[in-house]
Write a protein that binds this DNA or RNA. Structure first.
Length: 416
RNA sequence: GCGGGUGUAGCUCAGUUGGUUAGAGCACCGGUUUGUGGUACCGGGGGUCGCGGGUUCAAAUCUCGUCACUCGCCCCA
């Protein structure tokens, strides 16, 4: 194989099959979320770098090492979006939509992260997501999670996934907790894993979901985030869990579920799977009540989730439904035009018609078979002279002479 | 960013201790007489063995580098 011409590392061409699945998933999320009132929107795939730097957290991995950032020809610092929420919130502020609360958006598109590629982890990948802004109450959390659950249900991958949920409390609560956690962990400095030692300064919460066995045993006795929640957060979380139970949505409370992005507070959740190796999250989200204010907008709360489309594709088994169609086969070049004309008329009637372009009749029928056409219309000189076409059923092998004037009507009937 | 594995035709792979024109299946193209497909039979095209160095009389086979994929860590969707 000549590998001189290849796509950039971590990027992938979506050919027909992938696109079919991609669109299937996007359409599913679109129609399901529409039942909750989410309306589609789209934002640019690049933003001023600050949109992400300020919101995701200066110390987060995404900002410090994974962003595609560059200066454009106008010397503006630009970043290819690593996630969707910041752009949506920016767009709401930019367009003065803060007046139209609650605001519910559904979006999909490419995201960019400079990471080490792996199965289910690409540098250009695609997400579908949903954002609900302007509702602080637990109904929003419940609805948003229910929507994600329904998506997984309808994609038939719910059985591979488990909903993990946690509450991070307010940002104040979290800061207090982090202090306590660091304080506790500091006395185990010589036992913590290398990675966790680094995280102790940078992102101590991350130590909670460390996979190192030593770390896990230390964490067992660490202070719990749940003990630091204020009464509102505590009550809120309880209500959300009750709400989920009412809807029969099973969940696992995972006290170690923390998010990599700074803007989250209170509810955080992930639908995780064990089918994708170390890429376990398929849909993840949470509440971000301070994000908009932090970006310079109004003080409006929000909650949302995003799902990785490539990961969803890997888990789902989507069978393409082939559209019924016919192949139109001229026999003899002199009959091309009458066939093109027929194809044109059929297409205008919204009938999927393949033209047979070259070869003798045998080859053309073979080709029609390869295209899995349901019928073939064969028109040669003899047919033209007598004003009919041969309509061949490619499954049964039976064929009929049909008058040219009636052929469109006939096809409409048999394709039903 | 760290550690391991892999890389041979469009696809899935085989290739014995380095040795002559690198193989199979599927796919593709053509044929089995002239206007009839799906099956069968026959034939054909296609690979500088990811790329670049090195060792050797000789390398797809050994070695180094590089690129890509993949697994674990990390991170996350």
């Amino acid at each position: 194989m000549n590998t001189k011409l290849q796509s950039v590392r971590g990027t992938h061409d979506h050919l027909h099959k992938d696109m079919y699945e991609y669109n299937y998933i996007v359409n599913k999320v679109c129609s399901i979320s529409a039942n909750y009132g989410f309306k589609q929107m789209s934002t640019p795939i690049f933003e001023f770098s600050n949109v992400f730097k300020r919101t995701l957290g200066e110390s987060s991995d995404i900002v410090t090492k994974e962003m595609y950032t560059f200066k454009d020809k106008g010397e503006e610092e630009i970043t290819l979006r690593p996630e969707g929420t910041a752009g949506i919130v920016r767009a709401i502020i930019s367009n003065g939509l803060a007046q139209e609360m609650p605001f519910k958006a559904f979006y999909h598109g490419p995201m960019f992260r400079y990471e080490r590629p792996q199965k289910g982890r690409l540098r250009q990948f695609h997400q579908v997501g949903v954002e609900l802004l302007g509702v602080k109450k637990e109904q929003a959390d419940i609805e948003v999670i229910a929507c994600a659950k329904q998506v997984l249900d309808e994609l038939n991958i719910e059985k591979f996934s488990k909903l993990n949920i946690n509450s991070l409390g307010s940002i104040d609560d979290r800061q207090k907790y982090v202090k306590a956690l660091v304080n506790y962990l500091s006395s185990y400095k010589n036992k913590l894993s290398k990675d966790s030692l680094m995280r102790l300064n940078k992102n101590p919460l991350r130590i909670l979901d460390s996979k190192s066995e030593d770390d896990i045993s230390i964490i067992k006795n660490a202070p719990k985030l749940s003990e630091y929640l204020n009464s509102f957060s505590h009550e809120n979380f309880k209500n959300i869990l009750e709400g989920l139970e009412n809807l029969n949505i099973k969940y696992i409370i995972n006290e170690n579920l923390v998010r990599g992005l700074d803007y989250y507070n209170d509810t955080t959740f992930e639908f995780i799977t064990d089918k994708l190796g170390s890429q376990s999250a398929i849909i993840a989200g949470g509440r971000y009540d301070s994000l908009m204010k932090q970006m310079g907008g109004a003080d409006i709360p929000g909650i949302g989730w995003a799902g990785g489309i490539e990961r969803l594709i890997l888990l789902s088994t989507i069978n393409e439904i082939k559209r019924k169609h016919i192949s139109i086969i001229p026999v003899g070049e002199e009959n091309n035009n009458i066939c093109i004309d027929l194809a044109h008329k059929l297409r205008n009637k919204n009938i999927f018609s393949e033209m047979s372009y070259s070869g003798n009749l045998k080859k053309r029928l073979k080709n029609a078979n390869k295209l899995s056409s349901n019928f073939a219309i064969i028109i040669g000189t003899e047919e033209v002279r007598n004003n009919y076409g041969l309509v061949r059923n490619l499954e049964t092998g039976k064929q009929k002479k049909i008058k040219l004037a009636e052929i469109i009507e006939y096809i409409e009937k048999i394709l039903l």
